[in-house]
Design a binder for these strands. Structure first.
Lengths: 278, 278
DNA sequence: CGTGATTTTGACGACACTCAAATAAAGTGG
DNA sequence: CCACTTTATTTGAGTGTCGTCAAAATCACG
């Protein structure tokens, strides 16, 4: 066992997971609870995002019939490692950290999810292999597994879209492997910051120069495979070098974008793409 | 840039990729070239594997109509990084290494593929993001992109199966992330050896205690994120400790399975599962 | 059997982890 | 609202794993 795996689990441990099923109010919420308005998604922001934008109106109607809005307060678990998961969640708003506890107590963050990303329980009847924790309040459209599978069965187009999502995620994971195997701490941190400002921008949007950091240093460290101390030192160094500034501890502003690109080894703004959490 | 990224590209550089389209002989080959025999897969070994085993006879027939057998000699490239890829390959036999060259010349191995695994060109019209090199002679059943997409469109079941493959691969990648972020060299090596003996065993098969090592030390190192020297030292140590023996340089026999499991941190024999290369 | 590529072995050094303490922020009760 | 406690982050000093460099040994191939 690696020495740094010992010790207590780091990072925020949320209270016992409890799904909060809010009542929806207003047209948008009605739509996303499964109500059908004018045969379209109406004002639902998800329509502008990944899934709904890609299917025809008829399919969208079917989706709405079986979809259900679910929200999770910050700190709650959407998925629990080891617990059966029989829902598929499309994240509408907020941010989620996916983590995994190893046998020896070490923690590993496998990714961060945001608007448009998916947590899929389609093959975790016997227990999810990781935990999904809400880093902020999170709004989702969700489906029961059977109903979602029904949609997949009835709409081949739908399965293809999901396959594309998954393929994107595989490629993203390969990119992350590159970070983990071939980069030093500062390089990983630079790549992470660029990831934050480039992902989850709307369609056609360009990379931003500021981003929220709702996750803890432990989350970042466990994601990049470095210690919290290294994360802290790295961010401090970036601040000293004028690469970034931090108005608050959970907010970062990129001051020298080219320098971060140079450091990270990334050559251009990565295309924003879907992520399939599970 | 990390210091160890400099220098020439390591590992075998195959001659210019050239697809070898062998003539097929015998029933099995006829089947896998797209011929239809008795409405089933006949003796094709792929049927025992991942895709063909999961679909009905009718779908299987359609598959065969558009499938084509392709073989690649050891050292040839099935995919080339940056080159458009318009085929989907189902690997019937042999082993493939997927690698990626970074801007600074560093090399990263994202995975190894074997029988039942898939190299998918369904979304790489503009260029594959990694290279697939045959480590041994490789036999495949392949499809042109359009025809494969047609299959997906016409058979919702088919897309779901592919989605399951992809989901498995995502989970496998997350497991690999754990290796890369939380394990020391010896632990990574142990996990790699266990991976080799447990994957690509037939359905219902148990883990073996011996495996071929058709890949170079550089391939292993680039996969595990360590140097070739560390790989070599690690294997030597394992031999000295009696954990393994190596009849030849490209062959390994596990002599102390529990010790390797203990080292790797893996708790049980991982379930063999599909891998989607691209 | 000779040449080149791959692997192995050795010595040394650096990056990042460990341990520890200080500081800052967040949460809690009076 | 403020003192107090708890948690998270930052900073510092020391150390070990693993990477770098270099050379020897082994293997592959003609």
């Amino acid at each position: 066992m690696a020495p740094w795996q010992t010790g207590p689990v780091r990072g925020m441990i949320a209270p016992v997971a409890e799904r909060v099923d809010h009542d929806c109010e207003g047209e948008m919420d009605d739509i996303c609870r499964g109500q059908h308005v004018n045969g379209t998604c109406g004002g639902c922001e998800m329509r502008q995002l990944r899934l709904c934008a890609s299917v025809d109106a008829e399919t969208r109607r079917k989706i709405h019939q079986v979809s259900q809005r679910m929200v999770f307060a910050k700190g709650r678990h959407i998925v629990d490692q080891g617990e059966p998961l029989d829902r598929v969640y499309f994240i509408r708003d907020g941010m989620i950290v996916l983590s995994k506890i190893l046998e020896d107590g070490a923690r590993c963050v496998t990714g961060f999810l945001g608007p448009g990303d998916i947590i899929s329980g389609i093959k975790h009847r016997e227990g999810a292999y990781c935990t999904g924790t809400a880093l902020t309040d999170v709004a989702t459209c969700s489906f029961r597994r059977e109903e979602f599978m029904q949609l997949l069965q009835e709409n081949s187009q739908f399965g293809v879209i999901m396959l594309m999502f998954a393929t994107d995620e595989i490629e993203a994971q390969h990119d992350h492997n590159v970070i983990l195997t071939r980069k030093h701490v500062s390089e990983r941190l630079a790549a992470f910051l660029l990831f934050l400002v480039n992902r989850w921008v709307g369609p056609g949007g360009v990379g931003r120069t500021a981003a929220a950091l709702p996750m803890s240093r432990a989350d970042i460290g466990d994601y990049l495979g470095v210690t919290i101390e290294s994360v802290s030192r790295g961010l401090t160094k970036f601040r000293e070098d004028g690469f970034i500034s931090m108005p608050s501890r959970d907010r970062v502003v990129i001051e020298n974008l080219p320098a971060l690109y140079e450091l990270s080894g990334l050559e251009e703004v990565p295309v924003s793409r879907g992520e399939l959490g599970l």
